[in-house]
């Protein structure tokens, strides 16, 4: 297969009512890569994932997945398309009423007619890949945050998708789990020949594993490059973000009217 772009967005925009969340996003992602999308909280990163998954319709532009425009697909076609994608939600979104085994087996049982013995083998293989084969009969409530994230990862590779989207996979994890998840993302992407999109604000961890980085700020792509380019970047926004500085292009203060006026001090000084 030619290394054509798996995902391509063109002038992609989304607004919620009058509030514009994303505008003019042009991204090309090729197969077999791990791509990070970074940005501050509320910068529209998750919205971008939802647009790619077809959960919401863009208000301008389009997303192409494997050459097809996502929002023009009918519901059945969209569901067909989604079998090739999968998404890892922020806290795993494991089905709390099903055991670890049944969570991983869920899609196999819903979408295939595989015999139960084969499903069992496949599930144990997927769990082995994330190192949790021994935990297959636990319930999600019995798992730690890192383990839940790994089970969710096993579930998302259940049907060997070509694309996995990770929504904040590093949030709320201890340093060990953080490294484990990061390495798993890289290893699985390479081993299964998938494409991964990692939406995160964890700069240090993600720079270690990704091939390319996009920075989103205020709904537009502020910068992009390889991890080395990003680390050496002198662009003020990237510098502030990578080094976690308090003030810079991203201001500490939410836009507001003059402080003195808000405190109604104007008159007394004038």
């Amino acid at each position: 297969m030619t290394p054509e772009a798996l995902i391509e967005t063109k002038d992609l925009g989304f607004s919620y009512g009058d509030r514009s969340i994303l505008k003019g996003i042009d991204i090309t992602m090729s197969r077999g890569k791990v791509i990070a999308i970074m940005g501050g909280s509320g910068s529209g990163k998750t919205t971008l994932l939802r647009l790619i998954g077809g959960a919401i319709r863009p208000s301008s532009g389009y997303v192409k997945f494997a050459g097809k425009i996502v929002h023009e697909q009918k519901r059945d076609e969209l569901f067909q398309m989604r079998r090739k994608m999968s998404m890892l939600f922020q806290f795993g979104a494991l089905f709390t009423d099903l055991s670890v085994f049944d969570n991983v087996a869920f899609q196999m049982r819903e979408h295939t007619d595989l015999p139960e013995s084969m499903i069992r083998d496949l599930v144990l293989m997927k769990l082995q890949a994330v190192g949790l084969r021994g935990a297959h009969d636990l319930m999600p409530a019995e798992l730690s945050g890192g383990m839940a994230r790994r089970v969710a990862l096993a579930r998302s590779i259940a049907l060997d998708p070509v694309l996995i989207m990770y929504d904040e996979p590093f949030t709320g994890l201890d340093p060990i789990s953080l490294t484990v998840i990061g390495n798993l993302i890289r290893r699985l992407t390479d081993a299964l020949g998938m494409t991964s999109i990692v939406v995160t604000h964890d700069v240090q961890e993600s720079l270690k594993i990704v091939d390319y980085v996009y920075f989103i700020a205020d709904g537009v792509i502020a910068a992009h490059g390889t991890p080395d380019e990003v680390r050496g970047s002198v662009a003020p926004f990237v510098h502030q973000f990578v080094h976690g500085e308090e003030d810079g292009p991203v201001s500490f203060h939410y836009p507001a009217q003059a402080y003195a006026r808000d405190l109604k001090l104007e008159g007394s000084f004038a």
């Binding site: 989604r82 494991l94 089905f95 009423d97 899609q107």
Partner: peptide
């Protein structure tokens, strides 16, 4: 409460992304 919590913890959205209709399932 159960369906509401499934929605709040993204389980319904996850199902939708797995091409499984939450209303049917």
């Amino acid at each position: 409460a159960e369906i509401g919590l499934m929605k709040a913890t993204d389980q319904l959205a996850a199902m939708e992304m797995m091409a499984v209709d939450p209303i049917a399932r």
